[in-house]
């Protein structure tokens, strides 16, 4: 178990949980998002092997309408 912050919200995840697992849980298409882990951008190819740990801060962003 680990407590992390996802887009400012506290959530609890299982141990050995990767970014890819997180994306799957929230049904997010990895092609349509970008991810920052503790302020550092994580390249898409690393989603599978990047495991989350206690107190990690994850930001998941995508494109929305804008001027």
């Amino acid at each position: 178990m680990a407590k992390i912050q996802l887009n400012g919200k506290k959530i609890v995840i299982k141990s050995n949980y990767s970014i890819l697992d997180l994306l799957k849980k929230y049904k997010l298409n990895n092609k349509k998002v970008a991810i920052e882990l503790n302020g550092i951008i994580i390249p898409k190819i690393k989603y599978k092997k990047k495991y989350l740990k206690n107190n990690d801060k994850v930001e998941v962003v995508h494109f929305i309408g804008g001027g």
Binding site: L6, N7, G8, K9, Y26, K27, L28, K32, V33, A34, E59, V60, V61, H62, F63, I64, G65, G66, G67
Partner: peptide, 30 residues
């Protein structure tokens, strides 16, 4: 032009921009 914002993780069914505009067909300017 498009903006970059947090994904709404609580509302998975909400439609998203890229469902309607395809970045392969139109140039996205973030």
């Amino acid at each position: 032009t498009v903006a970059v914002r947090r994904v709404n993780i609580l509302d998975k069914k909400k439609p998203i921009l890229t469902d309607y505009l395809d970045p392969k067909k139109i140039i996205f300017l973030p």
